[in-house]
Design a protein around this nucleic acid. Structure first.
Lengths: 205, 205, 205, 205
DNA sequence: TATGAATGAGAATTCATTCAT
DNA sequence: TATGAATGAATTCTCATTCAT
């Protein structure tokens, strides 16, 4: 029977891998794709350069992988917040709140997705388009439902969701430029919720 | 004869400078700040490397300068479109149309401003924030006026404008992912105009 | 197995570092600071360019470091020769002999210190002044002692030592211009010793 | 009859040429051969780059030429001071004083000759040796005469002059490191004169 | 598995020199 | 004579990646 790594070994390996990925997210988020060097990442993870190449094939592949994972995480969080609410206003508010929470408590996630290596990594372009498409879908789902129940005005829900996704991103990114992002966050959530309800022409009956 | 300086020579030099800046915009827009090399730029402009450094001090300075100039151009175009219309719907529609036109006919402008070197050039961060602030102001101006005339619902116009700026950018950026941006553009303008009028709760009386 | 660090590896690294420094001394001595390129140095050491920057931060830092180390070596050699003798004539003669020996057998040392990058490296100016000061002190020490014992005429020993340092350097540098430096060296030592004893007005009682 | 530039034209040309050479001396003295750029020189002379190449073939040739001219000037000044005095002490003192004067009032001359491009310009090596040889001769002449009159002890006058030349250079160069070179200069002249008279064992009868 | 010394292609930038005007 | 725009070889330095241990 061929060698098979025991569970403990496997776990240890995964743990190290995870550690390195977290380190990489931090560094990529802070410096951007190009300015972040492999040396920075391994220093953050406290391992040797060779170790990096044992776990990951190269810088670009890692970055794209990180981008995808991070996108999944963000989308899942928002989706989850939305689906656990019943009415449209609640869903919108919960979704935005979830997004803002991540921005405040895990700024690296937002940095990576919205700023990170946008015009920098060629093979990321398609991933980015995909991410935006999925993000739009997340916001579009509750709108479609509301439209079918005539709770909002007739409209191209896809276009509306697209615009809303951009609107949320802009406000959230600007949060970082504020002196006290956390206190500003609450206001932003309320403002964006109302903005959204107006934008979809929510009637509530 | 002591060589004429201020006449044709000066004009020629300015023309060449402009040519090189256009070449640089193209290359920066296409590849992003880091991936764009000086060699790429001078190849595009069909001059020698030394010529680049005769006209510009270094890569970063040029990029920031280009960013600022391009931002001014875009802002001026939108502002101009808005102020030449009378009613809010017209203003919104004209502003969006101007923006979309630039995106379609001068895609490099949008690439540079929205994608270019976002997380790449440290000294650009502040310029970017400034640009977003000014862009928000451009959209906010007509809203403030409309609010003072009770044409739109009471709201935080600055936040609304911020969100709208993000919304427009998202839709316009996604235009490039479409197979036929130009035909999609018309629909986008109409959709965004309606989205905006709903989002500001325009009553029209 | 986790790779042994502190044992053989460390020694090997130190050895290579030393090899590269010797190569650098040769090249700097031969061509001077500016004309010596990193390529020259790594070619002499038979390593890749990157290896240079693995061991040293940059060209200038290395040069200054080399200058300091070489200065220490020369000063120590002369000082050692002087202190191991009892009478002033013996001390002078031994000091000069030590200096000449280095010039003959390690010409790069003298080239680096007296010719190398004199007007070339800004951060070297202060190091050079320091070196000259210390060299003067080395020659001054035995003079002070002799003066306190009235073995030499009353005089400003510091100024005398300064002048002697310059005198020795000149003669030693001119040695290299001779067809047979080694044979000339013996004469030079004798001449300089007598010159010195006259210059300090050594009485011997 | 072929065109011949009039005297006025010739003079003008020579004047400009001289201006540029003076500018070059300043710049070379201040920055050293490598760090001094053609742009620096023409900026100092307030002419265009092309003008430089009209008057001089290239940077290295100019530097060597400047070195030679400057060396001639210095040697002539010292020689002149010496020959205008009668006794050895007066000759020594006058020669040193002339040297120190130049160092104080025309520091660029000394910088160029003693520091300038010593290990920097290959074709200068031979010129430097020549200069040192001539400088030694200047100091040696009065010694030979004095020796023939038994005013100084029997000695290898060439070696003595060599050593003295180095001694003077050292002290003069160190003058620049002093806070007040001018006030120190007088002391230096006196000290060096006495040093010299001791070193040659001057008896005075 | 883990290490880090070693590599070298490639990037930004400088500067002596040329030449059309 | 005088100008300065244009050139491009050459330099320093970075950093992703490899591989022997």
């Amino acid at each position: 029977m061929p060698y098979r790594s025991s569970d403990k070994t496997r776990q240890k390996k995964d743990a190290k891998r995870t550690t390195m990925m977290q380190a990489a997210v931090q560094v990529f988020a802070e410096k951007g794709y190009y300015a972040a060097t492999i040396r920075d990442i391994v220093a953050e993870a406290d391992v040797a350069i060779g170790t990096f190449y044992f776990y990951f094939p190269d810088k670009e592949t890692l970055f794209v992988h990180l981008y995808e994972e991070t996108a999944d995480f963000l989308l899942q969080a928002i989706r989850q917040a939305i689906t656990s609410r019943a009415t449209l206003p609640q869903q919108i508010q919960a979704g935005i709140q979830a997004y803002v929470n991540i921005a405040v408590f895990e700024p690296a996630v937002v940095q990576l997705l919205l700023v990170g290596g946008i015009g920098a990594v060629p093979s990321l372009t398609v991933k980015r388009i995909e991410f935006r498409k999925r993000l739009t879908q997340v916001w579009q789902r509750p709108l479609d439902k509301a439209l079918s129940q005539s709770l909002i005005a007739p409209q191209n829900c896809h276009r509306t969701a697209e615009a809303l996704a951009g609107a949320y991103d802009e406000v959230i990114l600007n949060l970082f430029a504020h002196p006290e992002p956390e206190s500003e966050a609450a206001t932003a959530v309320r403002d964006l919720t109302q903005f959204t309800l107006r934008a979809v022409a929510y009637t509530g009956n």
